[in-house]
Design a protein around this nucleic acid. Structure first.
Lengths: 192, 192
DNA sequence: GTCTATACCAGGATAGAC
DNA sequence: GTCTATCCTGGTATAGAC
């Protein structure tokens, strides 16, 4: 693998483990196993390296959320996406960035993060609207609102898991979400 | 106000705005308007100052969650607490700490954070159990799970709001939660 | 109790040799 | 392309005067 790829890979890992502010160019070079000159040859600095690494990461997570557009009834897809395995104590690779002041202040980085969320929320909204259309959820539900509620449950699950240092709060939060969706589940009166 | 109080107050503000790692003793002293000697006279260092400041902050938020034990039917209390005004783009003063590697690695600090969440989750659980007992929510609901779901919605709402730089995702997430609770709301068959 | 002076190390980047 | 040497700033803490 090229030095360049080693560097973006190492930066992606460190962004997840420590965040942006707490990751120094030294750390990245050490983990990538390359020298300083190499890094500043390929990238103008920490910022540019982070842009590249974060773009790759958000791309992965955006791919994952395409599960909301997949096979099965809308509500089934929603539950399938909700119950995807998620490492609670490690935190969300994208959501974690929003708590880093240096990321929020960096127009380019926060735009990447915001874009990833917008894409995912759009998919949530569509799936929810379909669930309502085919009678799986009541018409009283507002897709744009519930989309944010469900995305928040995942993000908040990470927060609770990290606070306790255990996976269990994340799993509990997801179970609670599913049970609430089930409780709200209306009789299916059209085919999905 | 004493220098000591100025210092803890300034630290509490900066913990909220920038987090622990990104806050330097210099910043705190500057905001508190005291000199370096004063700070190291009252506190052994950044860590001890943060312990004191964070304890005060979690105390405030814990007081707030006592609203879940207040007047009205359980479901009413839950909705009242959910719809409390929350500054989405500023983030949660407690939840934000969980994304700071230095906080999670600091046994004393993370214990303060974890304790605050445990207290709040306990209050959620009790209110939910009461709502089930008096028939406002279906018996299929597991209080411990839904407690984490609802707490996660608030925490996740902060994440979404910060990602977008706007309050609206937080408000939408809360509205979606309330509508989901309403959709799951069973007929009341006992008095609350 | 509070101040200033000082020390030391790490973050982040540049310069220039190979 | 990659390495080492070097630079400047800021984080964190200590020393000691007032």
């Amino acid at each position: 693998m090229s030095s360049r790829d080693q560097l973006t890979g190492a930066m992606a890992e460190l962004l997840w483990e420590r965040g942006y502010a707490a990751t120094s160019p030294r750390d990245v070079m050490a983990r990538a196993g390359v020298g300083q000159g190499s890094m500043y040859h390929h990238f103008s600095g920490k910022h540019e390296l982070a842009v590249e690494a974060l773009s790759a990461v958000t791309g992965d997570l955006t791919d994952e959320s395409s599960l909301l557009d997949g096979d099965g009834s809308p509500l089934e897809r929603m539950k399938r996406y909700l119950t995807l395995p998620r490492p609670g104590t490690r935190g969300c690779r994208v959501g974690r960035m929003t708590q880093d002041p240096q990321v929020v202040a960096d127009a380019e980085l926060i735009t990447i993060v915001a874009g990833a969320f917008e894409t995912m929320l759009g998919r949530w909204e569509r799936a929810i609207a379909e669930a309502i259309a085919c009678g799986e959820l009541p018409a009283s539900i507002v897709p744009a609102d519930l989309a944010r509620t469900l995305a928040a449950i995942i993000q908040g699950g990470y927060v609770l898991a990290r606070a306790k240092g255990e996976q269990s709060p994340m799993d509990a939060a997801i179970r609670g979400a599913v049970s609430l969706l089930d409780a709200a589940h209306t009789t299916v009166d059209t085919d999905c």
